[in-house]
Design a protein around this nucleic acid. Structure first.
Lengths: 162, 162
DNA sequence: ACAATTTAATTAACTTGTTAACCTTATAAC
DNA sequence: GTTATAAGGTTAACAAGTTAATTAAATTGT
């Protein structure tokens, strides 16, 4: 027997108190923030356990990954690329420095800036996790298809301009 | 003069250490989690200041909004609909109860459950904020278009199944 | 009826998100 | 050159995300 999702006998929704036509057509838009959250969670729930095995949060990992790609970045660049706010980034970098995965050197040309680099153990950690990471990417592509991924990405980018 | 986004003289990216063809095609997929984050932030950055004026976080508001729609929900239903994990929800509900916006009654049929309802001030808060909220929805639709919104939503829902 | 298992919600501990204030160094104005 | 202003990063305070452990009540098995 197919599961009853919403027996019409048990209605738990109030009729919208007073809903002029001008306010009705926003149902889709209203659902957008949570839809974005759910989609993201569907992805992250695959990455998180794998990263946790290596004692990384996804944000810590994002920083590691960016430093592997760019070798040296200052905090502002990291914040922009990883989409992490400065106060969070400060804590994350402090954590990674404590664990000897990342080092900082003060910029000589602008002494407000600090330049961050992976240590050798940091690079090793990156290499150690990468294969698992790629495995998950392949699963996602196998499920969703590369065309849909690109379409979705372009819609998301456009929305992000808003 | 168009801004130079990436003068080719200053390359800061390492060549990918060793990148067999099998590992190359994941660039798009790799960007997906952050693209979802950025798109969501583009929306939330409109709602947050407006909610903050009324002393609500977006999560608190989600709970208020759901209780307005459904009049009575238990914590499990709220967690599922608002996509908030139980420990966060416990704190949010405690906060809203302290502010007399929400009340709880213990379910008589299952005394592990608590049923939550908006108080009169809670309903007033909802009504007070609603017009601003709808204004933002309209801006989003004006910018993005309802068709794209529906397309995006269906892609997100499909991805969320993963 | 009783022990074992499951479920709803909470608590604990830690990390991150969010805003505002702050400190230090660069840059701009005069 | 000195003062004002801006920019990079950190600190502080509180809310929320995340995982694991806990408590109390319901359900299952026997």
């Amino acid at each position: 027997m197919p599961p009853l999702k919403r027996p019409s006998a048990m209605r738990d929704t109030k009729p919208p108190a007073s809903n002029p036509a001008s306010e009705l057509p926003h149902e889709a838009t209203k659902a957008m923030p949570i839809a974005l959250l759910r989609a993201r969670e569907a992805l992250m729930s695959r990455f998180r356990p794998m990263l946790a095995e290596h004692d990384f949060t996804s944000q810590q990992w994002r920083v590691i990954r960016l430093l592997n790609e760019h070798s040296t970045l200052d905090a502002a660049q990291l914040a922009e690329k990883a989409f992490i706010l400065p106060p969070s980034l400060t804590r994350i970098l402090a954590n990674l420095e404590t664990r000897d995965l990342v080092t900082r050197v003060q910029s000589s040309s602008d002494r407000r800036r600090y330049l961050f680099t992976l240590t050798t153990p940091g690079e090793e950690a990156f290499r150690k996790i990468s294969p698992d990471r790629i495995k998950v990417y392949k699963e996602i592509e196998a499920y969703f298809g590369r065309d849909k991924i690109n379409l979705l990405l372009s819609l998301l980018d456009e929305l992000a301009q808003f």
